[in-house]
Amino acid sequence: MIIIILCMTALTVAGAFLLARAGGEKRVYFAQAPDGPCAFGCSMAWLAVRSDDPLEVLEALQLEDASACNWNSGIGAVYDDWLGATRVFVSPAVEGWVFAVGLSLPHPLGTGFADKCTPLLVDLGSRFSETQYFFSYPPIDYYAWARVKDGRLVRAFAVSDEGVVWNKGRPSREERSLGLKLFELRGVRGRKGDAGGEIILHPTEDHVLRLANSWSIDPTTLHVSHAPAGLGYIATAPYRWRTERTRKAA
């Protein structure tokens, strides 16, 4: 499945936009021919917002320089090394959910950094009945998820190779069913590794995608059959989302 997603991403990046030079300035054109859903999720961050209106989600996020684009170009852009650093794709609605996809979404980073993720989720929670956040990035061993229902942050969790950096609310039933209930302890009781130390219990990308499937939709399974052809929006993440230290590093 991951190989299929990566191949699909390479094709979307190659065909999603045209770069042209005019007067020495690089310009980006995004395709606006309506198309059906494209899969994403591997090594990516996204919001799943309970809504049928992508424009309403776009406005709530206060994204900048928005323009219409289709699934193929939007997903291709957020996976691109250059465009993905600052872009967010707001998708057409799929089965009552609108996705906001991009590595430029705020991420919880723990002590020493301003928490810009929680305020964003709480604000969305005041506008939509449910908002979910997911982030899976195996290259840095970072995984996160959060859920806001009826205006209340009921669960938020993030872990990196340095340990838990975000932990609010009680583990959900869906987390426990995936064997995630012991993450706070960072180990498994009664089991020993080959070196005699405690075995570290750590989530994987598969856990994040399975949890997304339990709460809303696993985006790696999206296919054109999930929704009619449509257009979403590609936009620039606001400057206020950028990482900010609250104190100097030691």
Rank of each mutant, 00 (worst) to 15 (best):
F128N: 09
L105V: 02
M44R: 04
H207R: 03
L83W: 02
W215S: 11
D65I: 00
T221Y: 02
E59C: 07
A237P: 00
L211R: 04
C69G: 03
L211W: 05
A249S: 14
L61W: 06
F30V: 05
A68C: 05
W82E: 13
V101W: 07
L58F: 12
C42E: 04
P139S: 04
L201Y: 00
V122W: 01
S136P: 02
M44Y: 03
P219E: 11
F17D: 01
E56M: 00
V188E: 11
T9R: 08
G112W: 09
L121A: 14
C69W: 01
R152C: 01
S129F: 06
T236P: 03
R173V: 07
H226A: 05
G36D: 02
A33K: 14
F17Q: 03
L178T: 06
S172E: 13
F134L: 10
Q32F: 05
C42K: 02
V90Q: 11
A22L: 13
P37W: 04
S51P: 07
G169W: 07
G41E: 01
G125T: 04
E130M: 13
A16L: 07
V94G: 06
V98L: 09
S67M: 12
Y143D: 02
V164D: 01
A237Y: 02
P108D: 01
I217P: 01
Y239L: 15
G102F: 00
L103R: 15
K168N: 07
E184Y: 07
L120D: 07
E162I: 02
P54W: 09
F113D: 01
K116P: 10
N72G: 15
R247G: 12
E162P: 00
R176F: 06
A158C: 14
A85H: 06
D53S: 14
L18T: 12
N167K: 09
T204D: 08
K248P: 12
A31V: 09
L180D: 00
Y233S: 05
P92D: 06
I4F: 03
E244Q: 14
T204L: 14
A45V: 05
T236E: 14
Q132I: 08
